[in-house]
Design a protein around this nucleic acid. Structure first.
Lengths: 219, 219
DNA sequence: CACCTTTTGTTGAAATTTCAACATATTTGC
DNA sequence: GCAAATATGTTGAAATTTCAACAAAAGGTG
């Protein structure tokens, strides 16, 4: 467990909690370590919303597949980040999305009851965690706002440019990598993959961007 | 202020707080009461993200207008509900959306600093409020998930049906009212208004639904 | 009630997306 | 390094959306 120290320090759940207390808390919370191979399902749609996930290594994706078979990618999870916490904290019956490993992943699963319903004796760590969860969820809320701002655009070109400009802003550079392959980007932007490829070519020909694989540069 | 008692009791911020303490807390939080006429802007895009809003009466809408002039309606706010709390709690500089009064509104604005940064003396009310905010934001997060599930559909018809089925589920009946007029529904579903009207007519002719104004019935 | 304003429905043309099918490029596993 | 599998790019046809313009209906106001 010690090898995850740096990851856990950065976890939004443990902000403001002294290093020496983090591992004690993880024990106290009854966290379970699990590993998943690439493409495996960490949490399946319909599962009970019981766990708050902490990604320790690898990367994962939040997905939803609808009735028609269209996949929507809600977002990506990187080490230190939480996943599925909104469903656990809202005390939903089940999780409406799937969490899929993009590469081999190690995750820590914390039973949400240990965070929400125990320790009413004013334990200060516990209160700090609730505060941290609150902040984390406010931030996640904003991330969803940003996704909606991108996907609300009406054409593939506008969605793509909105997304790329967002990435450029995040990277503070016109040159950046995106975390998605073409199919994933299409599923994130909620457009057709082949149309997306065509649009990227078009923008390249128009001299608006350069790209090789996942690397883009806005001109 | 007493006339808002019932509304405040139902406010997610005051869950688990005894009735007799609610007004004291509102004073303590330095909440400001403001009123707005129909169509007025309660919070404008770009404003400092300083306030958590509580809607006391009327109804409001969360909107975002992009570069191209397309309006997106993120959602609706009903009495007792909070608005703009995610931006305040995440300590964002400014609010990326506008909150618009749909009818004459009374709102309570609470400086988020009074909730986030004071009272580190373990005041139990305060801790309850943080917990409440956390739950509220988890729930809001899920609401956004639901919206994305609807708007991720690829055609106007699919979006509309997904929305109507969601409403029917909420109402626990095939017969229900929606809170939007046609233009607003189009802006919520992120489609063209005239195309939406055409699609509704089509569904009516196909015998899939009946509708008069805002009332719908799925058959 | 009559007038004006706003909302809703209808239509056809133009733009765009999706879909399917295939070619090419890249990656993976042995 | 090769073969197989996967990912990406390209194309044209069909479906759908958007857009603009207008007609009809509903609502508000004096």
């Amino acid at each position: 467990m010690e090898k995850y120290f740096e990851v856990l320090r950065k976890c939004p759940l443990f902000v403001g909690i002294a290093d020496e207390h983090i591992f004690k808390m993880i024990n106290c919370l009854g966290a379970v370590l699990e590993t998943f191979d690439k493409k495996y399902t960490i949490i399946a749609e319909g599962n009970p919303a019981k766990f708050i996930g902490i990604l320790l290594s690898g990367s994962a994706q939040i997905e939803q597949v609808d009735y028609y078979g269209n996949r929507t990618i809600m977002g990506r999870v990187e080490p230190s980040q939480l996943f599925s916490e909104e469903f656990a904290c809202a005390e939903r019956e089940s999780v409406p999305v799937s969490v899929i490993a993009n590469e081999p992943c190690e995750v820590l699963l914390v039973d949400c009851n240990h965070i929400l319903h125990t320790c009413h004796n004013n334990c200060s760590f516990h209160q700090q965690m609730i505060f941290n969860l609150m902040k984390n969820m406010a931030t996640k809320n904003i991330v969803y706002h940003q996704k909606m701002e991108i996907t609300s655009k009406r054409t593939t070109r506008e969605k793509l440019l909105a997304y790329l400009m967002f990435c450029a802003k995040e990277a503070a550079s016109n040159s950046f990598e995106i975390p998605y392959d073409r199919q994933e980007l299409a599923d994130f932007l909620e457009v057709d993959r082949s149309g997306l490829s065509a649009e990227i070519s078009k923008l390249r020909k128009e001299g608006i961007l350069q790209s090789t694989k996942n690397h883009f540069e806005l001109l």
